[in-house]
């Protein structure tokens, strides 16, 4: 299992378009990607649930990646967060 934390920089938080692009990205991997904020969590493929976490600028979220290709998947997802959120 791979896990990292990320502090959101986008003023709106995780909004529709980046959530949608993320959902598409993780489809390329076998690993499951879970976005965790406090006690709530959502699978990265369920973009509406991800949006509904209501994560805002300044919030710290945890991203958990589990599966056979978790190393490379975690790298891709982390890079995506850094560039887009």
């Amino acid at each position: 299992m791979q896990e990292f934390t990320y502090t959101l920089k986008d003023p709106v938080g995780i909004h529709a378009r980046p959530a949608g692009i993320l959902a598409r990205k993780v489809k390329d991997f076998e690993s499951t990607v879970t976005i965790i904020k406090g006690e709530q969590s959502a699978s990265a493929g369920a973009l509406m649930k991800v949006m509904a976490l209501g994560a805002k600028q300044g919030d710290e979220i945890t991203i958990r990646v589990e599966g056979p290709d978790e190393d490379v998947c975690a790298k891709v997802v982390e890079g995506f967060f850094r560039e887009n959120m």
Partner: peptide
């Protein structure tokens, strides 16, 4: 907005 809508229809939970 339309791109976002298109993506929302890919939502695995939905």
């Amino acid at each position: 907005i339309f791109q976002a809508h298109e993506m929302m229809l890919d939502d695995e939970d939905l």
